[in-house]
Nucleic acid binder design. Structure first.
Lengths: 198, 198
DNA sequence: GAAGATTCTTGCCAAATGGCAACTAATCGC
DNA sequence: GCGATTAGTTGCCATTTGGCAAGAATCTTC
C-alpha cells in the first residue's frame, strides 16, 4: 500500500489535472486529507446516513448501490483508483442517503469531511473550480450513460463497459454488473454466451 | 409576456431559494441577465456549437435532444418555467455540444453568457453556491431518472412522468415523450391504450 | 376548406428480456 | 480438504418492446 505522502502527491496530480492551479494550493489542500482504509465488504456509506466523506480512492474498487422495493440491490456506479467517491445528493443536501457505497476489494484512499471541504472552498476560492470540475465530470458521464441506456441494447452496453472499464470485471460479480447494466444476471449470462459463440 | 424587471425579480426569488444569500447580491446578479425570446421551433443551442448561454426560463417549454447514429432524435430532457437551461458538458468544458436545445413553444427568459457567469463567480464568491446548487439538483434528478430507467417498466416511467411533469404532455408530441422514456412511439401508444382500458 | 404534412394508432410478427427452477462451478470458512 | 454458501448457466415459457406498414386523426398552409 502507498504511504500517506504518496497518496497526497497522487491527489495533487489529480487536482491540478482537473483544474490548473498553483502547486502550493493543491498541496495545502492535500495536506488536509486523512487516510481511509477499508476491508472488502466494508461500507463507506450506508443507506439512511449522511454522506460526509469526500474520498479520493488510490487503491481498490468500490460500488454504489440502492435497494429497490422488491429488496434487490441495484448497482448505480463503480469506482476505481484515482476517482473521487461520495454520494452527491446526500453530501451536498445534507440529507440521508438512499444509496450505499461498499468496498468490492480492500481499498485505500484519503478523504476530507464535508465541513473541511467547505472550509477549503471558503479559504481558497480557486479550489472551488476543482469541486465544480468533479461535479461536471460526473454529470457528463451520467448523461452519456443515460443516453446509451435508452438507445442501445443490453449487449452493446455490456461490450462498451467491457471496453471502458475492464478492471471491474475482475473485481465485481456478474450479478452486480448485470444490475448496473439494467438487466438480470440471467440475461447477462445469455448475452455473454451469445458473444462467446461469435 | 412578463416585463424584464418582472423576470429579474423571479430570478432573484429563484436564486435565494436555491441558496440563501443577501437580496442585494441576488439583485446585482439578476441585473446582468438580458432578455431572450424564442419562437416555437427556435434553437437555443445547436449540435456542434458551444453552449454559451445560461438561460433562466420564465415562460414556455423546451427540450434537449441528441441525434443517434440511425438519424433518430432522442429527447434527453424537458425544460419548463423557473428552470435553468444550458448544456452542462459543452458549457463548462467549452467543447462543441452533442445536443440540441429547442423551443417546444414560444419561450421567454433571461440569460447570461459563460464569461459573465464566471465574472460573477469571481466577484461574488458566495454566488458560486448557487451555481453548485443548480448542478447538484440536475445531477440528483438525473440519478433518480437513471435508477428508474433501469429498474422500472416503461409503463411505470410513463405514469411517473405524467404525475411529476404533466405540463409536458400539453406541449410535446408523444413521439418526443416516447424517446425521452426510452421507448418507441408505437410502444408508448400501446401503453397508453392499455392504461386507458383499466 | 382542401391538399398535404405530421402525429398517433393498430395489426402482425420478431427480437429482447424476465421469472423461475434446476443444475454446475467456484469460493469461503473452518 | 470438505461441507456449505454463493455465483453463474441453462431450459422453458411469459412478457415487454420493437419494426414495419397501413390507416385514422390532427394540424398546417395557402
Amino acid at each position: 500500500m502507498n504511504s500517506l505522502s504518496q497518496e497526497r502527491s497522487e491527489l495533487v496530480d489529480f487536482i491540478t489535472k482537473a483544474y490548473p492551479m498553483p502547486l502550493k494550493m493543491a498541496s495545502d489542500v492535500a495536506e488536509r486529507f486523512y487516510p481511509v482504509r477499508l476491508g472488502k465488504g466494508d461500507f463507506l456509506l450506508k443507506e439512511g446516513s449522511i454522506s460526509n466523506e469526500y474520498l479520493f480512492l488510490t487503491e481498490g474498487y468500490m460500488r454504489s448501490f440502492a435497494m429497490n422495493p422488491d429488496g434487490n440491490d441495484i448497482t448505480t456506479g463503480f469506482h476505481g483508483p484515482q476517482q473521487v467517491v461520495f454520494e452527491i445528493t446526500s453530501f451536498f443536501h445534507r440529507i440521508p442517503s438512499r444509496e450505499n457505497i461498499q468496498a468490492l476489494t480492500p481499498c485505500a484512499g484519503i478523504a476530507i469531511t464535508y465541513s473541511t471541504l467547505n472550509e477549503l472552498f471558503h479559504t481558497l476560492p480557486e479550489f472551488r473550480e476543482f469541486g465544480r470540475s468533479i461535479l461536471v465530470r460526473g454529470f457528463s458521464n451520467l448523461k452519456s450513460r443515460m443516453l446509451s441506456t435508452i438507445t442501445e441494447t443490453a449487449e452493446a452496453r455490456y461490450l462498451q463497459l467491457l471496453q471502458t472499464n475492464p478492471d471491474i470485471f475482475q473485481h465485481a460479480p456478474l450479478r452486480t454488473i448485470a444490475s448496473y447494466l439494467g438487466i438480470t444476471d440471467t440475461s447477462l449470462s445469455r448475452i455473454r454466451k451469445e458473444i462467446a459463440g461469435k
